[in-house]
């Protein structure tokens, strides 16, 4: 007779350890995904806030905000960006009241550093690896007095679409919400003849000024399509001209005009988020939709356009 066994054999211990190991390896990715799901939800909520703010803005001003900052290119064309315009509707009246639209250098003026440098989490998507903070902004030199040479700006990940541009489709450009097509005047909800629920207002173009290709890998400077914008840090901060033509790209995110419209690059006109599988976008009715990476280009184009009269397919 062998003695009564006490405790575990080595094999049993090893088996138990192996099972625990497998279980942990199953659990850890789930935890990471739960975190990302929470960040995505926060991001969705931010877009919802922007959608509601723009409705309140329209109620007050009977039009949508002028989307262009227009600070430098045509002098004398100073108007505020949509980010600045809707501050009162985002419960940021204090910041809005600090802003001096008559300052000689606009947002680059020392008088406006405090406002423009404000970090507002509502304009940032938590999934963006750059995080919410401050980046170097542009140096505007309309007037040399009071020019802010140490200009820093609060980051922003949300854009409005000026148009959808793709030279392989006819017509090659269709105009987006908030734009009259010429920068001459603002538009109201009545101009969005496709319907507010069928027209995109805000979308994600995350992580500026850090330019990435597909899968979030950094894009080399030699591969930039629009180096000037990156060099001058003209975008990526909420008070700036946070709008662009949305362009299609190839799936690598290396050359524009291709079959991909979501999550291939945040370079020139690329709609990009760090959410797995797609991007958040808010429609004119305030609803936030998740646009899949595999969305058909023409469907996405119809979603961007405000008056092209096409039936918006399912996506």
């Amino acid at each position: 007779m062998s003695p009564i066994r006490r405790g575990f054999t080595l094999v049993e211990l090893l088996v138990v350890i192996a099972i625990i190991g497998v279980l942990i390896s199953l659990l850890l990715p789930a935890v990471q995904q739960a975190r990302e799901a929470a960040r995505r939800m926060q991001c969705t909520n931010n877009l919802k806030q922007l959608g509601l703010a723009i409705h309140n803005y329209h109620d007050t001003h009977r039009s949508l905000p002028f989307p262009d900052m227009g600070v430098t290119y045509n002098s004398g064309h100073w108007v505020s960006s949509w980010g600045l315009a809707i501050l009162p509707q985002m419960e940021q009246s204090a910041a809005y009241n600090l802003f001096d639209p008559t300052a000689a250098n606009g947002v680059s003026d020392q008088a406006n550093q405090v406002v423009v440098g404000t970090e507002l989490t509502a304009f940032n998507c938590p999934s963006t690896p750059r995080g919410s903070g401050q980046i170097q902004g542009i140096i505007e030199d309309q007037s040399t007095t009071d020019l802010n040479n140490d200009f820093v700006a609060g980051t922003g990940d949300y854009f409005v679409a000026r148009s959808f541009r793709d030279d392989t489709i006819t017509p090659r450009e269709i105009v987006g919400a908030l734009f009259d097509g010429s920068y001459q005047s603002t538009v109201g909800f009545s101009a969005i003849t496709d319907g507010l629920s069928n027209t995109m207002f805000f979308f994600e173009r995350s992580n500026f000024p850090n330019v990435v290709k597909a899968n979030g890998s950094p894009k080399d400077v030699s591969e930039y399509s629009y180096q000037q914008v990156v060099d001058t840090n003209f975008q990526g901060w909420w008070a700036s001209t946070q709008h662009d033509r949305i362009r299609s790209w190839n799936f690598d995110g290396t050359i524009y005009y291709g079959p991909c419209v979501v999550n291939c690059t945040n370079d020139w006109g690329g709609a990009y988020s760090f959410h797995a599988g797609g991007m958040n976008a808010s429609a004119g009715d305030g609803s936030v939709r998740f646009v899949s990476e595999t969305v058909d280009k023409l469907t996405f184009r119809a979603f961007v356009g405000r008056n092209e009269g096409e039936v918006l397919g399912e996506f």
């Binding site: 793709d166 030279d167 392989t168 489709i169 597909a214 190839n250 799936f251 690598d252 290396t254 050359i255 005009y257 291709g258 079959p259 058909d296 280009k297 023409l298």
Partner: peptide, 23 residues
């Protein structure tokens, strides 16, 4: 659904590879 327009960017020797989807 929509036209596929392959494109390529020339390298220093003027050589380019066409890409439709990726690579």
């Amino acid at each position: 659904n929509s036209p596929l327009a392959p494109s390529g960017r020339a390298d220093a020797s003027g050589k380019f590879q066409l890409t439709t989807y990726s690579g």
